[in-house]
């Protein structure tokens, strides 16, 4: 962030004034004067022409009457011809007092590509010059704030477009997948609604956090919410290490938990009143790589038989975890289904 107005102290490295005062020692005096007041000033040299200096975007330009050569005017005009909408470099012009001054001023106003023009008559009063320059710097500071704000808006707009496309794409994917596996409209309706609700739940959570990292505990809570009830709190247990995952991973993990829960509701622990599900997670370390391990364990449900075909939800979980460079393991224990998801921590950053 840029510093604000300073009465004392050295010049801010970012803010600087361009001095074009070719007569004798004018530039040196001006530079010293400004330096005492904590304002950095630069001048043109043989190596850095006026055009070069203007490219570096001075915060304010101070020109004396002697600087108004045809060449300089042309250089100024050319360099600043394509300023963006928000940009209007302040100009301060120091003129001799004579009968011609008014004409000079109107000529200046047509020549200089700036609506931000201050004219001062020599001999210059230091207070006027100082406040004029400070005013120019302040104006430029505001302009740069506008620039930054516009950049941010543009970035956010792009981000938003990307997310909207992504969400719509997800809805299509859920629709197509569900259509393929549903043999009746009723089956489709129920499965589609369930998946869509899970999607909506996860996205609401992401939106609430501003699409930043989400706590794994919150994802678990949200996706298991349809299955928890105050009457039987032991039905669902979700606990584990305090950690957060990126937005894309949050959606993936959320959908995986949803599929596991849906299967539990159809065939497993959630299909009977006394069934219980425990979802726990931890951070493990092996071969210098940190990994996350989630364990889904069902108990108290109907007797489990290993399915002859993989269910749709199981296939999705396997695919999704593979996409996170991980591995999903399904164990059909006598007590109930046990599913362990392992993936590198680095995969969950996004």
């Amino acid at each position: 962030m840029h510093s604000h107005d300073k009465e004392l102290g050295g010049p801010d490295l970012d803010e600087w004034v361009l001095l074009v005062a070719p007569f004798r020692d004018d530039e040196r005096y001006l530079q010293q004067f400004l330096s005492i007041h904590g304002i950095a000033a630069r001048t043109c040299t043989a190596a850095s022409t006026l055009a070069d200096m203007l490219v570096q975007q001075p915060w304010t330009v101070v020109l004396t009457q002697e600087a108004f050569t045809a060449g300089n005017i042309e250089a100024i005009g050319a360099s600043l011809a394509n300023q963006p909408e928000w940009s209007d470099i302040p100009f301060i012009v120091l003129l001799d007092a004579d009968k011609q001054t008014n004409t000079s001023v109107s000529t200046l106003q047509t020549l200089l590509p700036s609506k931000h023009l201050t004219v001062m008559q020599r001999p210059i009063r230091t207070a006027e010059l100082l406040t004029g320059i400070r005013s120019g710097l302040a104006a430029r500071r505001k302009q740069l704030h506008v620039r930054d704000y516009l950049d941010m808006q543009e970035t956010m707009q792009r981000e938003l477009n990307h997310r909207v496309k992504n969400i719509l794409s997800n809805v299509f994917a859920v629709y197509h997948m569900t259509v393929q596996q549903s043999s009746s409209l009723e089956a489709f309706r129920e499965t589609f609604e369930g998946r869509l609700s899970a999607l909506v739940r996860v996205h609401s959570m992401l939106a609430a956090s501003g699409f930043r990292d989400t706590r794994l505990a919150d994802i678990a809570e949200q996706t298991l919410a349809p299955y928890t009830s105050p009457q039987s709190p032991e039905r669902v247990r979700a606990a584990g290490a305090e950690l957060s995952v990126g937005p894309a991973s949050a959606t993936t993990i959320g959908l995986c938990i949803h599929e596991l829960a849906t299967n539990a509701a159809k065939y497993g622990a959630f299909s009977v009143a006394e069934g219980r599900v425990s979802l726990t997670w931890q951070v493990t370390e092996a071969n210098d790589e940190r990994a996350i391990e989630l364990a889904w364990e069902e108990a108290g449900g109907p007797a489990v038989a290993k399915p002859t075909r993989q269910g749709f939800g199981t296939m999705f979980v396997r695919s999704a975890i593979r996409g996170l460079r991980g591995h999903a393991e399904f164990q059909f224990l006598p007590t109930g289904l046990r599913c362990v998801l392992r993936m590198p921590s680095s995969s969950l950053a996004a």
């Binding site: 992504n166 794409s169 997800n170 994917a173 859920v174 197509h176 997948m177 393929q180 894309a248 959606t251 993936t252 959908l255 296939m315 999705f316 695919s319 999704a320 996409g323 996170l324 996004a350």
Partner: peptide, 14 residues
Amino acid sequence: AEDDALNAFMMEQS
């Protein structure tokens, strides 16, 4: 090569 789990799964299954 797709980072969205749902889209990737749909393509994979199809």
